[in-house]
C-alpha cells in the first residue's frame, strides 16, 4: 500500500511541475509581445513615439541616398500628403521636410501617425529628431496644418541601401471623439 502512496505522491509532484510549466508557457506567450517590441526597437522597425539621439554626426558625402515620402490615411476624414515626394541626402546631414494634413470634417478629430520604413531594415538608421508622430495630433474642424519632420540618416546605413521610403499612416484615436455623434462629413 505504501508503494502505491509513494507512487501517488510522485505523480502529484510531477503534475504540479508540469502544470507550472504550462502556466509559465501561457505567460511566455504574453512575454513575446514586449520581446517582439524590443527586437523591433533594436532593429528600428517600430520605433514609434520617441525622439532618437544622434550617435555620429559625421556627414558622409561619398554617398547620396534617395528618400521617398509617403502618406496613408486609415479611416480618417483627413487629407494627408508630404510637401515633397523625394529628397536626396548624404548620410549624417540634418534634413527637415514637412507633411501637410487637413481635417475635412466639421468637428475636431484626433489622430496618431505611425511611421514605417521600406526596406524595413533601414528603420534603425533613420534618426528622427522631431516628428509629428511623437504625439497625437488634434485638428480643429477644417484646420490645415504643416508638420515638420527633422531627421538624420545614420552613416552606418548598409552600403547596399540606396533608396528608402518613409511612410506614415494616420489612425484615428478612438475614444477621444468617438463619444461625439458622427454626422455626415460636409467636406471642404
Amino acid at each position: 500500500m505504501s508503494i502505491e502512496n509513494a507512487q501517488r505522491s510522485e505523480n502529484r509532484k510531477l503534475l504540479v511541475r508540469l502544470s507550472i510549466g504550462a502556466v509559465a508557457m501561457f505567460g511566455f506567450g504574453f512575454l513575446l509581445v514586449p520581446f517582439y517590441e524590443k527586437i523591433c526597437e533594436v532593429t528600428g522597425i517600430n520605433n514609434l513615439l520617441k525622439a532618437d539621439e544622434v550617435v555620429n554626426t559625421q556627414v558622409d558625402t561619398s554617398r547620396l541616398i534617395t528618400i521617398e515620402f509617403d502618406a496613408n490615411i486609415h479611416d480618417l476624414p483627413w487629407r494627408f500628403h508630404p510637401l515633397q515626394s523625394v529628397v536626396k541626402v548624404h548620410p549624417g546631414e540634418l534634413i527637415t521636410i514637412a507633411y501637410e494634413v487637413e481635417n475635412t470634417r466639421d468637428k475636431p478629430i484626433t489622430g496618431q501617425a505611425v511611421p514605417s520604413y521600406g526596406p524595413a531594415v533601414s528603420g534603425q538608421f533613420f534618426r528622427k529628431m522631431d516628428c509629428f508622430c511623437f504625439t497625437q495630433q488634434t485638428l480643429e474642424a477644417g484646420e490645415r496644418r504643416t508638420m515638420p519632420v527633422a531627421f538624420v540618416l545614420d552613416p552606418a546605413l548598409p552600403d547596399d541601401v540606396h533608396t528608402i521610403t518613409l511612410s506614415y499612416t494616420f489612425f484615428e484615436i478612438a475614444g477621444k471623439n468617438a463619444s461625439l455623434p458622427v454626422s455626415g462629413g460636409s467636406g471642404t
Binding site: H74, V114, S116, Y117, G118, P119, A120, T165, T169, F171
Partner: peptide, 8 residues
C-alpha cells in the same frame, strides 16, 4: 500588404 506598415 499590412495595415499601418509598408513593405517593399
Amino acid at each position: 500588404a499590412i495595415p499601418g506598415f509598408i513593405r517593399d
